[in-house]
Write a protein that binds this DNA or RNA. Structure first.
Lengths: 152, 152
DNA sequence: GGATATTATATAGGCTCCTATATAAATCAA
DNA sequence: TTGATTTATATAGGAGCCTATATAATATCC
């Protein structure tokens, strides 16, 4: 039970993380747009980067989004020629999703543009500080994942 | 120019922050919903928590969202009886927005519920680690804000 | 004072997410 | 083998965010 002192949005991780997330999204959007991607698509791109194929379900699980979010995303990506859907020969319900050649070709340049932006975001951070931040964020995500799973 | 080694989503701050942000939002939503709020409204609630009134423009600036996002949010909040819009006597274009009594009454319980969730998210973190995380996030946000402002 | 900027909101359109629910194929059990 | 359950995707509906643009009121500058 902590005292009901007045609230400071900027000393809690949650709002700081929300702000950072939105800023990263806006900046990332600008950087990947020239290559025909949008920022939310990157987890899918990442998972399929070697040219392999995955089901929608596996993509959703590994990208940690809900299945309907993934379905919608894949529809847009298919519409934009980034992704191909093929019926799974072993399961009539499922699809196998893979990146198109066009998408694969644009990957290296896209990633370079994005990396450059991420470097700028960490201007003034020592290597140790970056590692510290990443480590703390990983632990935070582990806690959060558990809470989401337990419906806490 | 760094080597094009294979990509790891989990050693970059940006995707980790995006994941954490989404988890916080999902968990926070569950916690504040019983009180009639939704998680995205909290910056507005926070800014108006003492019963004062602000223009939409000031709310948007201080909550660091774009004006149209704020306009939409306020429409929903007005619809839900959380906020009141009054014409600004000094400026025919502007409105003065304030929380309704109903919203003000539910504030303490809402904040308590949210704080509890945030504590759980930081389970296993020492006080120093929390301060470290907050400090690093603040610096990161400063960088990001600058980049957004400079259209970088 | 009247034309021209600037400023405060509003609207349109789209993306990324979420929850809840429907549909269709596969699996399991009796 | 058929009926019930589980599983993979789809659809509906909505929040929250963004960019681009329209509208209306205020300021500014001849």
């Amino acid at each position: 039970m902590q005292p009901m002192i007045d609230w400071n949005l900027f000393s809690n991780p949650a709002p700081l993380i929300n702000m950072a997330s939105r800023s990263f999204a806006r900046l990332g959007e600008r950087r990947v747009k020239p290559f025909g991607f949008s920022i939310g698509q990157l987890p899918v791109v990442y998972l399929l980067r070697h040219g392999g194929a995955m089901s929608q379900k596996d993509l959703a699980r590994q990208a940690k989004t809900e299945q309907p979010s993934m379905a919608q995303m894949l529809s847009r990506m298919e519409r934009d020629g980034l992704v191909r859907r093929a019926p799974d020969p072993d399961d009539g319900r499922a699809q196998l999703i893979s990146l198109t050649e066009a998408a694969l070709e644009k990957l290296p340049a896209t990633r370079a543009a994005l990396d450059e932006g991420n470097q700028h975001a960490l201007a003034g951070f020592s290597e140790d500080e970056v590692q510290m931040l990443v480590g703390l964020l990983r632990r935070l995500n582990e806690n959060l994942d558990g809470m989401v799973a337990r419906e806490e």
